[in-house]
């Protein structure tokens, strides 16, 4: 903890404490299902170096949480560590207070749409049915009941008419909807989504937002990697800002500030009608009037950001 706090001072100067209140009673929270997702001291690396450094993250149940951060900040890696697709170098992940492998049935994972080959010979219905494989186990085959459930999930995302369509014949937005239907059919409590809004048209984006709100209304928790700083405050109510290290986390209105975004994206992130974050100081770019004006960061690989992306001791 102390090490991270010091590291932050270097990049941000004086400011409100970056660590959210949940961290204070971390020991108490560790094995309690007070959090839908609890990530502890998580460090992960690829051959190229550390992509996550000592990340502590808590997501309370029943929120729509966004993870934002520049390219290479480790957002997708974090999700992959949660579902066990990547073994972290250090740290722990708890889902509703217990290790992931004992909570698989309560989690639905939506990978990045571009991570699969959409020319694979299969239909939309078939892809959605894969969401039921976990429940079916190894030997049982999907039958009538599974087909009905898959159709229902497709209908929820407005895609039932495309059930028998070959997935390569679907548009990007439709493919994303199929992925979401596959998650819905899993009937999970925690939904992990890797960039659900990437490359979809405005109609699909609205449909997905409605779907997320519906999930929240039913008490579900959503953790989504998000790229668009302009919409994050309107779509989500919980926010974690990540750049290899966790910069800040908490309710969007507390966390979505110029200061925090500057810490993640470098001083050139532009907020509120053209003024740079550096000039803005700690003026919140929060959820009120100006929020939608906040522009996305500049070029994706500025030196500042690369500097910020370096873990301590590197």
């Amino acid at each position: 903890m102390a090490r991270r706090a010091r590291g932050m001072e270097g990049t941000m100067g004086a400011g409100p404490p970056l660590v959210s209140r949940g961290q204070a009673d971390r020991a108490a929270a560790m094995h309690e299902p007070a959090f839908a997702l609890h990530v502890e001291d998580l460090t992960a690396s690829y051959a190229s170096g550390a992509v996550l450094w000592d990340v502590d993250m808590n997501v309370p149940p029943g929120v729509l949480a966004a993870i934002v951060g520049p390219n290479g900040a480790g957002k997708s890696t974090l999700l992959k560590c949660v579902i066990g697709a990547l073994r972290p170098a250090a740290g722990h992940v708890y889902v509703f207070g217990r290790p992931y492998r004992r909570q698989r049935h309560r989690v639905a994972y939506v990978p990045q749409r571009t991570s699969v080959d959409w020319d694979f010979p299969t239909t939309a219905l078939d892809v959605v049915t894969m969401g039921l494989y976990g429940r079916l186990g190894w030997l049982r085959r999907p039958g009538r009941r599974e087909a009905d459930e898959a159709h229902e999930a497709l209908a929820l995302v407005g895609m039932d008419a495309f059930a028998e369509r070959q997935i390569s014949q679907l548009s990007g937005g439709q493919q994303q909807r199929v992925f979401l239907a596959r998650a819905l059919v899993q009937d999970a409590d925690l939904y992990l989504m890797d960039e659900p809004f990437a490359g979809v048209d405005a109609t699909t984006e609205r449909a997905i937002v409605e779907l997320l709100k519906d999930l929240r209304a039913r008490g579900k928790t959503v953790v989504a990697v998000h790229h668009d700083l302009q919409t994050v405050a309107t779509y989500f109510d919980w926010l974690a800002i990540l750049n290899v290290r966790l910069i800040a986390q908490g309710p969007v209105r507390d966390v979505y500030t110029a200061e925090h975004l500057r810490a993640a994206y470098g001083p050139r992130v532009v907020l509120l009608g053209g003024a740079s974050a550096a000039e803005q100081g700690s003026v919140p770019a929060g959820v009120d009037a100006g929020a939608t004006e906040a522009a996305a960061p500049g070029s994706p690989d500025t030196p500042e950001r690369r500097a910020a992306a370096r873990p301590p001791g590197d």
């Binding site: 991570s115 299969t122 999907p142 596959r182």
Partner: peptide
Amino acid sequence: ALAWKELKVTTFDADFARSLGR
């Protein structure tokens, strides 16, 4: 034939198969 579902989901979407614990 025995591992049909598993082979299919692994070939199509390996990360998703991992999330199911395969």
